[in-house]
Design a binder for these strands. Structure first.
Lengths: 182, 182
DNA sequence: AAAATACATGTCAAATATTACATGTAAAAA
DNA sequence: TTTTTACATGTAATATTTGACATGTATTTT
């Protein structure tokens, strides 16, 4: 079973919701480590339904709008817990198109390389700022029993990741400029 | 045109080689930011051939073993250079199964969460050590005109990435333990 | 009252990527 | 001399993901 299905089970384990709600979560609270579009969510829900890991009730919103509110079953809870407690070997290193461009940048004008480095630094600084805005909502570190504590941990991870990307790019820019002056 | 095709063009831009050689590069020098299996490389070479971006000559190794040695064409060089100098918006945040598990770890025993954190720290420390072994080969920072300089930059990036992953995990472990003692 | 945005659910085609299937030669080690 | 490892090239089936197509309701803004 793919990771996305466990992500869905994990969310439904917290709270029953619709495919639309799940999709929204993938665009917000899970955004810093997992994303999915609605075109992937609905088929996966169907698959989980066939496995008996989720069930749904139809609710009417307003006068005609049908909503399918999905709830995790005991079977689903068991499958989720089993995944959650399994220590999987770490996945292959994520692909990074910019690192690839940089790797080949010896074939490029030094000014162009610098321009590329500065553009990407700017992009990652923006991303970092967006994550820091989330961080500011935490006034204290939440107690470790709450799901808020987990939110805090993964958000810290996202900050670490972007900070290190930025500091690497700064280092690259320095190295490129230094050797220009000498 | 997909990124993998540009990765192949970039390698052939440095030196003519076979699909087998390319696959080996994806497992070694490009490993820290892009990978591909031979089952993906051969069809992509075929596609590049149809586009006129590469051509090949058949060489005989030994008495019977046929090798297809691919060479980039001028058209291929132009396409590559165009990609290389384009500043693409940064890609969505890479997926990370462990961060997903951690995000849901409020539903888990605190000891289990700690066990998971320590396992992943160990895995990433190992990965970091492997990259550091590559780093040790550089006695000085190579001059910026050489492709070695690019190798150095991306390798530094891989070190930054793994170091920050490890320091984040250490921070998480500390936070989990701290609150246990208090 | 109209328009725009958010809510809500799906399918389909295409691109990307992994694993397994399939075959054979060359060189090095046991 | 046999076996194993590296060299060498492909295809097929499957899984994952994205982007486009397709439709309709509810709410908010203009």
């Amino acid at each position: 079973m793919g990771t996305l299905q466990y992500a869905i089970l994990g969310m439904l384990n917290r709270e029953s919701m619709t495919g639309y709600d799940l999709t929204r979560e993938f665009q917000t609270s899970l955004f810093d480590f997992w994303t999915a579009k609605h075109s992937q969510v609905y088929p996966e829900l169907k698959s989980l339904l066939e496995k008996g890991y989720v069930e749904y009730e139809t609710e009417i919103s307003g006068t005609a709008l049908k909503k399918k509110v999905y709830t995790i079953t005991q079977q689903g809870r068991d499958a989720f817990q089993n995944w959650e407690e399994t220590a999987y070997p770490i996945k292959p290193i994520p692909k990074d198109e910019f690192r690839l461009q940089l790797f080949f940048s010896d074939a490029m004008e030094p000014e162009m390389r610098l321009k590329q480095l500065e553009y990407h630094l700017q992009q990652h600084r923006q991303r970092l700022e967006q994550i820091r805005k989330k961080q500011e909502k935490f006034e204290v570190i939440p107690p470790k029993e709450e799901s808020q504590f987990c939110d805090y941990l993964v958000m810290q991870g996202a900050i670490h990741r972007e900070e290190s990307y930025c500091s690497w790019l700064e280092e690259c820019i320095n190295l490129c400029q230094q050797r220009k002056i000498l």
